[in-house]
Amino acid sequence: MSDILKMCKTVVSSLRKKPFCQMYPFKPAKFYDHTRGHIKLDASKCILCSLCAKRCPTGAIEVDRVKGSWQINRYKCIMCIECVVACPVKPVKALAVENQYAPPMAKMEMEMFDVEVKKPAPKPAAAPAASTPAE
């Protein structure tokens, strides 16, 4: 008899407990410090060096240093954080990982940030964004 009612203990004890799931839209989701939500650019810090675009394994980032734009394709990004590691701006990097996920998008398009071009690029030939290895 008790052999087929083994589960009852767990089931009955969970009757007395609060639901294990969170009421998600009403309560905020639980995040940890390391949670990888999305990549955020601080446009005032970016120096348009395009190191992030070169390092990105999926080619999700495109940097145009003439027009001063920094774009990311959220559909391509796999949240590997390589771009954040590569960003050379000190002491606070221009890129950061946000815990919250990127808002849903109905269309697959690049998210564009306008970056002010601070000074003429030292060597324009060095880093055209299209030279990322992956495409």
């Binding site: 589960m7 767990t10 089931v11 969970s14 294990f20 940890y32 410090d33 390391h34 949670t35 990888r36 796999i78 949240m79 590997c80 954080i81 990982v97």
Partner: peptide, 29 residues
Amino acid sequence: ESLFMHSWRVRELVLDIFEETTGGRVIFD
């Protein structure tokens, strides 16, 4: 079904450890 749900409930606790230490729940990188 109830065993299925309770197994996955315990699994969530493990995934929480993963999220806390690596930042991902499925792909840990």
